[in-house]
């Protein structure tokens, strides 16, 4: 199980939380996803055999949010 932290553009609408969390969680291979609204960060745990961090980045981008930095741990 890999972990990824994405720094997003500044989030201002509370509904973004559920939108982004929901979209990530629904992605195949993602175990859990959490959005830190105030820090504007998305964290996800995923199975590296099913999905890559670059794919997760594009999931967020397709919702219309800028991803500034991706950090894998």
């Amino acid at each position: 199980m890999n972990k990824v932290t994405m720094q997003l553009e500044t989030l201002s609408c509370p509904t973004c939380i559920k939108k982004i969390e929901g979209a990530l969680t629904k992605t195949d291979g993602v175990e859990s996803a959490k959005l830190l609204f105030n820090a504007s960060k998305a964290k996800a745990e995923y199975d590296p055999e099913k999905v890559t961090s670059a794919e997760l980045k594009s999931v967020v981008e397709n919702l219309g949010y800028e991803v500034l930095k991706v950090k894998e741990a």
Partner: peptide, 16 residues
């Protein structure tokens, strides 16, 4: 409208 639509797809009733 886009935000409202995205939210409704996640089954969320947003202010939008």
């Amino acid at each position: 409208g886009i935000k409202a639509y995205q939210a409704i797809r996640m089954k969320l009733f947003s202010i939008e």
